Amino acid sequence: MRADARKNRDHVLAVAGAALAEHGVDVSLRDIARRADVGLATLLRHFPTREALLEALLHTSFEELTARADALEASGSPEEALVVWLRDCVGWTTEYRGVTVLMAAAIEDTESALHASCVTLRAAGARLLTRAQAVGAARADIDGTDLFALIAALAWLGDQPALAPRAGRLFDVVASAVLTGAAAGDDSAAGGAKSVAKGIV
């Protein structure tokens, strides 16, 4: 890519990031083009679909969350690693309102520009879940797809102004339901899981 074309692309991305952070993923591509002071055709030449634009914006974040899962898998206790990563993912998805709706669709749509990144992210979470299940720290009747759906549901709560104040407490409730507390030898599985979920920042 020529230097001037790359500069234009980076400018459009910067403007798009600000617009999506302000208005969510439903902001019109025409409005993004107007804000960037380029024609819609120019924007579409770089990013032919909304998903392609989001993939370009979010690619680094996807990679960072995947790397974060790898680091937690190698260091933290299984239950702590799982909850920390869940919290990180939910926090990240609230950066662009409505992004989880597109991610949930993209993971089943092999033609979506977001598909590969979403599948990789789901696999990272599934590894942390499997590790926690192996030591009895997480319930055995859920899988990586369930975990991905829970992230989407918790992120949706954070997107709703009337429900956002409850999002932190409900994260703890969901994390307590995912964990069993068995790895810590707690006589009360629910109580042990709740303390782990609430104790991790």
Rank of each mutant, 00 (worst) to 15 (best):
M1Y: 15
R2S: 14
A3K: 14
D4W: 11
D4V: 15
A5N: 10
K7P: 00
R9S: 02
A14V: 06
A19C: 09
A21V: 10
G24I: 05
L29V: 05
R30Q: 12
I32G: 04
I32A: 07
R35K: 10
R35E: 09
G39M: 03
L40V: 14
A41T: 07
A41D: 08
A41V: 02
T42P: 08
L43Q: 03
L43I: 06
F47M: 02
R50F: 09
R50W: 07
E51G: 08
E51F: 04
L53A: 09
L54E: 04
E55Y: 12
E55D: 15
A56L: 05
L57F: 01
L58H: 12
H59C: 07
T60R: 15
S61F: 01
E63G: 15
L65T: 01
T66Y: 12
A67L: 13
A67P: 02
A69N: 01
D70T: 12
A71T: 01
L72K: 02
A74I: 01
A74P: 00
S75W: 03
G76L: 07
S77M: 07
E79T: 13
E80Q: 13
A81E: 00
V83H: 02
V84G: 00
R87H: 08
R87I: 05
R87M: 02
C89W: 13
C89P: 08
G91I: 02
W92H: 14
W92Q: 13
E95I: 08
R97M: 06
T100W: 08
T100D: 10
V101R: 15
M103F: 14
A104S: 13
A106W: 04
T110P: 02
T110A: 14
T110V: 14
S112W: 09
H115I: 09
C118I: 10
V119T: 14
L121S: 06
L121D: 05
G125V: 06
G125Q: 07
G125H: 07
A126Y: 09
A126T: 05
L128R: 09
L129C: 10
T130R: 15
R131G: 03
A137P: 03
A140R: 09
A140P: 02
D141L: 05
G144N: 11
T145K: 15
T145P: 09
D146E: 06
D146V: 02
L147S: 00
F148T: 01
F148G: 01
F148R: 06
I151S: 00
A152L: 04
L154V: 00
A155R: 05
W156V: 13
L157W: 05
D159L: 03
A162R: 11
A162T: 06
R166W: 12
A167S: 13
G168R: 14
R169L: 14
L170E: 10
L170D: 08
D172W: 03
V173I: 11
A177Y: 02
V178Y: 05
G181K: 00
G181T: 00
A182K: 08
D186S: 12
S188I: 08
S188Y: 11
S188T: 10
G191I: 01
A193Y: 00
K198F: 02
K198N: 04
G199L: 03
